[in-house]
Nucleic acid binder design. Structure first.
Length: 500
RNA sequence: GUCCCCAUCGUCUAGUGGUUAGGACACAGGAUUUUCGAUCCUGUAACACGGGUUCGAAUCCCGUUGGGGACACCA
């Protein structure tokens, strides 16, 4: 090494240490999805918990795209994941799109890094080339299974001599790089599960680099987490049994491991892993149905975590403030959409009317509803807002205001509209209607009082026939307001229609 | 099959040796309303099982059962 080179190396070390000091002062966490589809509920929850911890601790939240599975990874998925995260309001400090000091943040752009590090492991004797073909491995796997043995790699390429390797190379075999798994127990302290220990015989010599040069998950994740100086790996429970492999890799590299925090999984109502057959499972589906990001964040945070106060409606500020690993549960949680609906309804009811109206308009437009004047629309929404669980329901809730003809399908409603007293109410109503120019809610109330006096019909028998005539339904929002929005002519037309 | 994890009302959970086992959703009843909804009040409902340890166990230990996850050139 020349003095000049030495100087550079020292300078680099200095910079590294500086970065280390800056970065180690606060936690660094990452969310590392594979771009193989939309952001899933389970992944979103992982992202939320990482984000909450980063924001709580003044740390850094990193987005890393794990796109080493070329078959399944797509650019569209990557973009949709960005969209879904933004929609949730989970902002990241470093990532493929925003950059950062330890990039690139897309694994497909880090292939050289994985190769170099694999060579280091080979040089140090921690990894080796394996020439077994997938067919051979499969055959051996099945044989092992048949004999009741462990279906793991037998390590036969571990001690190939250079001559043996040359023969295989000559035969045109493309090798993979395998990790020489040490034969010893692995233990680590998980932030939610406590101390976990794994016996060595459960693990085989797993693949680091595939024959096409692409890294496998368990390898890439270690190299990246170390190089990106991740301090806490917060991820789903399903990765617990991968962790021993990863810890062995940290040790082989001479690196210290991050803290692991394995959060319980989210299950479907049948207690199986949440999947498409359980209905909507991706964030964009909930977004387009009109769930609110804050409600979803709130709800998902409460799957496996609880506030010390026991309260459940928690703003994201409070979630950030109160987040703490020690309050995470160990058991998997069932995703209950009924409770989510309730919670989303609470958030909808907490919106102010202008906000809510603005949020509803796109749904009405998408359903080709011709929008009335803004003030009228606000009145309509006021009438039905209490019953909304999610925004897209606004279309059906407001249906009565957008039809030109009432169709009564309910048998009980038909029956009720045909009684003698109902007919008396209708005729009286029409007579009284002529006495007024405009029909406000207040005028309508007075009018109904007159109808009551004229016919002697009261209460339910008085109101229900009118409701049926106007909406075709036996239930719905306050009638006086409906009438006010309908206006005199529409009311007359509908009531006339029913007495014909 | 092997390894690992997990176990409180139907569901989400509080609970860390002494509680009438608490809350939320859902459900039921009541109040309110012309009706539905929303709201308020009330109620039904749980420590998987069996052994220990202890004066005392939902809580600690062991086993059983049940559920989940991992054992790939997927992540």
């Amino acid at each position: 090494m020349t003095p000049a080179e030495h100087k550079t190396v020292n300078a680099n070390k200095f910079v590294d240490r500086l970065i280390g000091i800056i970065m180690n002062s606060s936690p660094r966490v990452r969310f590392a999805p594979s771009p193989t589809g939309h952001l899933h509920i389970g992944n979103a929850r992982t992202a939320i918990l990482n984000w909450l911890f980063a924001r709580h601790s003044g740390g850094i939240f990193i987005l890393r795209i794990e796109d080493t599975d070329l078959e399944r990874s797509t650019k569209e998925s990557e973009i949709s994941i960005y969209q879904d995260l933004r929609w949730l309001g989970l902002n990241w400090d470093e990532g493929p799109d925003v950059g950062g000091p330890v990039g690139p943040y897309r694994q497909s752009e880090r292939l050289k890094i994985y190769r170099e590090h694999a060579e280091r492991l080979i040089a140090s004797g921690h990894a080796y080339y394996c020439y077994c073909t997938p067919e051979e491995l499969e055959a051996r796997r099945e044989a092992a299974l048949k004999n009741g043995q462990l279906p793991r790699y037998d390590g036969r390429c571990r001690h190939l001599t250079p001559a043996e390797r040359a023969i295989k190379e000559k035969a045109g075999r493309k090798p993979v790089v395998r990790f020489a798994m040490p034969d010893k127990d692995v233990s680590f302290d998980d932030l939610v599960k406590g101390r976990l220990t794994f016996p060595p015989d459960a693990l085989g010599d797993f693949v680091l680099l595939r024959s096409d040069g692409l890294p496998t998950y368990n390898y890439a994740v270690v190299v990246d987490d170390h190089l990106m100086q991740i301090s806490h790996v917060i991820r789903g429970d399903d990765h617990v049994s991968n962790t021993p492999k990863q810890i062995m890799l940290y040790e082989a590299f001479g690196w210290s491991s991050p803290q692991f925090c394995h959060i319980p999984m989210i299950l479907g109502p049948d207690r199986e892993r949440l999947s498409k057959r359980h209905g909507a499972t991706s964030i964009d589906e909930y977004a387009s149905k009109g769930y609110l990001p804050d409600a979803l964040i709130n709800f998902l945070s409460l799957l496996g975590w609880s506030s010390e106060t026991g309260e459940e409606i928690l703003s994201r500020e409070r979630l950030i403030k109160e987040f703490d690993f020690s309050r995470l549960t160990r058991a998997a949680a069932v995703f209950d959409v009924v409770k989510l609906n309730w919670m989303n309804g609470v958030y909808i009811r907490n919106m102010n009317l202008d906000e809510l109206t603005a949020a509803c308009i796109p749904y009405l437009q998408k359903a080709d509803r011709e929008l009335p004047e803004y003030e009228t629309l606000k009145k309509m929404i006021t009438l039905v807002r209490d019953g909304l669980e999610y925004l897209s329901q606004i279309v059906e809730k407001l249906d009565m205001f957008f039809v030109d003809e009432v169709r009564i399908t309910d048998g009980a409603a038909i029956g009720m509209s045909q009684t003698e007293s109902a007919q008396k109410v209708y005729w009286s109503f029409l007579r009284q209607l002529d006495k007024y120019d405009t029909l406000t809610a207040e005028v309508f109330r007075r009018l109904m009082k007159t109808v009551n006096e004229e016919t002697g019909v009261m209460g339910r028998d008085l109101w229900m026939p009118i409701r049926i005539a106007l909406t075709g339904q036996m239930h719905g929002p306050e009638l006086p307001m409906i009438v006010e929005i309908f206006g005199k002519e529409k009311c007359r037309r509908f009531v006339q229609k029913i007495v014909e």
